[in-house]
Nucleic acid binder design. Structure first.
Lengths: 90, 90
DNA sequence: TAGACATTTAGATAATTCTCTAAATAATAA
DNA sequence: TTATTATTTAGAGAATTATCTAAATGTCTA
């Protein structure tokens, strides 16, 4: 989970995740939403991938990124646990 | 909200928040749960405070920290928005 | 096969973060 | 007032991060 928290700490990476929640995208489609270089985008994507939050598949020359739903939902659970009050029990 | 995400990115700070969810504590009470110096703890507390996640009051020589509930709940909302699926509408 | 396109990797740099010790500030106790 | 306790601030060093350009890799098309 630590890598998930770190992945979410960066606003660019949260924006990438939000974009991907709307559906799969290639790297260049994602890149169109940002001002930094492709190498920098690649670095952010690698962090999201290391956290398990995204999955990739190749489609010809492109790499398609999508949210990894099972991990995303585990993360949602862990994060909401962080905010759950003590008195609320499962 | 950015400072909230940054505050939550560090495991020590998440642990501090968890401790405080169990009730208010002085700095030295919090310190008893960690191995690093008081100065380092102070740095982490300052980040939590900058994010608005905790509030403080003085009690004699001690500073008592507690979770700032209204901000904590706003943060919970923002975080859960991050994880909400597109198709789920409010 | 050669060249073009899409993406990642390597290597470098500047900025930020975590941590420490030492010093400063605030409140209490002797 | 002086000493003691609790906490924060200052200043510095090591580690990490975000970013860049250039080079490498993988795929497609002419």
């Amino acid at each position: 989970m630590q890598s998930v928290w770190e992945a979410l700490a960066d606003p660019h990476r949260r924006k990438i995740l939000s974009l991907l929640k709307g559906g799969e995208m290639s790297v260049s489609e994602i890149h169109a939403h940002f001002d930094f270089s492709g190498a920098t985008l690649s670095h952010h994507l690698a962090k999201l991938k290391a956290a398990g939050l995204v999955i990739t598949r190749r489609k010809g020359q492109q790499i398609i990124y999508g949210v990894h739903m099972s991990v995303f939902e585990e993360a949602a659970q862990a994060v909401s646990d962080m905010f759950r009050r003590e008195e609320e029990s499962p």
